[in-house]
Design a protein around this nucleic acid. Structure first.
Lengths: 220, 220
DNA sequence: CGCCCGACCGAACGATCGTTCGCCTGCAGA
DNA sequence: TCTGCAGGCGAACGATCGTTCGGTCGGGCG
């Protein structure tokens, strides 16, 4: 009903690429994951059929299975990409250098950038319900990431860099909730990523109320 | 797999109620909606089967249909409850009295309370994808609510009560995102609602950074 | 006491799901 | 030119979905 079939043919076929010996599939290596992530987000994972996915890729359902192992494998690949992006932030030098607040702000700002760059994949990650083993695995890794944020918020509060009198765990959840809520409305091209980073940073640490700017947010 | 069947029998049967003539169903009027909303949130709407719902209610699937019209009707009822709660806030006198910032803060604080009181129903509302007509109708009403918030944020910024130099639409989205993200982690009993309201209010308008309190948040 | 009807149930419906199978086709390499 | 095979297809599989149907049961009321 009210069909929303795009004009098929997603992306262009790699013209003459894949000259290696193990050129198993010429159609696409991970571009199908990208297509799948997009459709998953539009309809929701459970409401998305393999027919929907194959149609978005421009081939039939049975052909689709020549390139992917199954629905859950697509989900896992997309989630891995999101988690790799997020955990990659924690490996950056600036994530473990300087005061707790400096590190926290770096992570938050980079998290916004990763969110924008890997929007479909991260969106998928943030909407998991934990129905399958794959989903539970991803949720567990996500909890690890959040735990790191919580520790940093706690350290920053102890150091007197964040507001006192509140539970660091609550503050960390509010902070992560603010950042993650971007996936619900931000769309690439609608707003420069730099501007988005600045807005989120200011909102998170200075709030919405009018005030004299403290020291501005030109970090790094 | 890994069945999570609760010990059946949800709530208690109304002892001797339903003495009116049109006592069509004695089992439950809207308590089934509550059960459904809870299970919908655990598994996701599409991943929830009528078997799941009826089992959570303690009866078989076919018996379940003597009390409800269908899956989508349950969803609609739950969404109506959420929307009624949210729009009820806008009808309160304090929502249209005083300065824009005063009104906005009242709405935000009340929104947190409604979120906590109607947690399963609002959670359902915030996770819609728009696959069915019912979902699109609810999304449209939700957009109306958000538009009201956006107008208020704009007015408050024009009045100099909110930070300048940022797009009011973006600020409104960040604000709503912060508030709505509560459904992802807040659970009743884990934290007093009053404390939650205070934390969110302070986070939204003052931010996380340590600072001297401006005028405190004892509104109304 | 006997009937009536709301509550409840087992079984089955057509539809759709994710996945598999057998077959066709067009072209790259011998 | 012949051939192998990756890429693509239609049809069908068992399972599960939301929903319906016919029937049983038991307690309140005439």
């Amino acid at each position: 009903m009210t069909g929303t079939r795009p004009p098929t043919h997603e992306g262009e076929r790699p013209a003459g690429g894949g000259r290696e010996r193990r050129a198993r599939q010429a159609y696409d290596p991970s571009s199908l994951v990208e297509v799948a992530a997009r459709v998953f987000n539009e309809r929701g994972y459970d409401a998305t059929s393999m027919e929907d996915l194959s149609a978005a890729a421009g081939i039939t359902k049975s052909s689709f299975y020549h390139h992917v192992r199954g629905k859950e494998a697509l989900l896992r690949a997309a989630l891995e990409r999101a988690l790799d992006g997020l955990f990659g932030i924690l490996d950056e030098p600036a994530a473990s250098t300087g005061s707790p607040l400096t590190r926290l702000r770096h992570i938050v700002r980079r998290q916004v950038e990763v969110l924008a760059a890997e929007l479909p994949h991260v969106t998928l990650l943030l909407r998991l319900r934990g129905n399958t083993e794959t989903e539970r695995w991803a949720l567990e890794r996500r909890r690890e990431f959040d735990a790191t944020i919580t520790r940093l918020v706690r350290d920053a509060q102890v150091a007197g860099e964040l507001r006192a009198g509140s539970d660091p765990a609550v503050d960390a959840r509010l902070l992560s909730g603010l950042v993650n809520s971007l996936v619900e409305w931000y769309r690439p091209g609608r707003m420069a990523v730099d501007a988005l980073v600045a807005e989120v940073d200011r909102m998170a640490f200075e709030g919405l109320r009018a005030q004299v700017p403290a020291d501005d947010g030109r970090a790094s």
